[in-house]
Design a protein around this nucleic acid. Structure first.
Lengths: 242, 242
DNA sequence: GCTTAGGTATGTGTTTTGACATAGCGCGAT
DNA sequence: ATCGCGCTATGTCAAAACACATACCTAAGC
């Protein structure tokens, strides 16, 4: 059940850099646990002071913040290979929550070992920082979306971005990928109301650019979606994985 | 004109951790330049592939992204001591621009030296990563603002957050701080139109919670502002500075 | 002194988004 | 089997935000 980094099936995906056996050994040593959580589990809590650092091994997750009156903003979605919890692990306490969207597996790097990692494995530390910077880039893009795109564009931007990320992980087949978000998740990620999200999806559906149904997303016209969203960013060809 | 880290007047502010002479020497070695730029200078360009890493030494700056049709979203504002350009320095190319809002001074850490820093100064590398995580936290909060707060709340949240940051840097006197943003900047940061921002400011002004005028912000009723914005986050008492 | 440009202010009408209500569907629990 | 719940769908109306037009003020440049 416990997955050692040496045989990790994730790191051989085309999305990720190759690593030497030594590098992998370092990371394997840092890893303290391999966690299985079921859909809906909140594995980092807002205000939590002892959150660990995680790499999502399988499944989907998201980070969120909320206001005192319950309004919730999803900050970003995590796919396999993504780091979750840099802020939570480094800062005094977590300023957000993190929840598994599907059943998921998490590789755990204890926050206590983080500084050691910087001392003894500068390469891994650099990659950690790199991944942190990438996560910020995702949030930046989401902020652009929430701040400056209208409802139709927001949905299109989200579809385009998630599709591109899934593609890199070999999660797309014949233009179709798993898509475990409810409309409430979409609304919370895009800064829209649930009802308006539903109506926006209906309008987009009528235009036939993509289809979301039964937990699947089929991207029918990537060009049109990218154009509508004015979303043209490329993911780096290969990235680290810790 | 060139400021050596040893005598840096910024790092002695109460907002920052103390450093040993050795630590300071390491950073001083990393620093390659001390740049002066005038208000409006864009010192990191979107798509730029060779952006350096900066610490803002004096003045204000902001990072932004824009859509092809010109809509602009300001991602966050930087105050003295803040790091700017982690993403730009680490990733292949910059996904955002960075502009000086006022005349400003920048300490430059060349991107080429970054990996060396990780190899030879794990403490400094850790702090760099910490600062990157903090910047992401700022963007997270801005995303919550743009996505889930209404116009009045957005302005209040921005005022509360910037005031709190300025306070930590001794930039507040008698409840008044420099505030070099135009209404267009506020609009672009909050995801509002210029006109609506102006009207929202007028409504808030009528309520007397704060006053923005002549490049100054006077916070008259911090409690009311925090309550309206539902903004209660605390900055960590002390943080690193590179 | 005049002009221009950037910034702020405000009225009017339109568009977008949200709120509320209601309904249907599928699925798991009792 | 049926009840309740989560999720999706859709109509109607209200509120929030935007677009456009115009005006005023100040400071910089000629």
């Amino acid at each position: 059940m416990y997955v050692r980094c040496h045989g990790c099936p994730l790191r051989t995906k085309p999305a990720f850099h190759d690593k030497t056996q030594d590098e992998i050994a370092v990371i394997d040593q840092m890893k303290s646990d391999h966690l299985r959580v079921s859909a809906g589990t909140e594995f980092i809590h807002p205000e939590q002071t002892d959150a660990e650092l995680y790499t999502l091994f399988s499944g989907w997750a998201f980070r969120y913040k909320e206001l005192a009156d319950g309004r919730r903003q999803i900050l970003n979605f995590s796919l396999p290979g993504d780091l979750i919890g840099m802020q939570a692990a480094l800062l005094d306490k977590s300023l957000y929550g993190a929840v598994a969207l599907t059943d998921a597996e998490l590789c755990v790097v204890p926050r206590r070992r983080l500084f050691k990692l910087f001392e003894h494995a500068p390469g891994a530390a650099y990659e950690l920082t790199w991944l942190g910077a990438r996560e910020e880039a995702l949030v930046d893009e989401n902020l652009l979306t929430a701040g400056r795109r209208n409802a139709m564009e927001r949905v299109a931007a989200m579809v385009a971005a998630l599709y591109k990320r899934a593609e890199q992980l070999d999660l797309v087949q014949d233009g179709v990928m798993d898509f475990p978000l409810t409309q409430q998740h979409i609304a919370d990620a895009l800064g829209l109301s649930l009802v308006h999200t539903n109506k926006t999806l209906a309008r987009l559906r009528a235009q036939g650019m993509f289809r979301i149904a039964d937990g699947k997303l089929a991207l029918l016209n990537p060009r049109a979606v990218a154009r509508l969203a004015q979303y043209f960013e490329k993911e780096p060809a290969r990235r680290p994985i810790i």
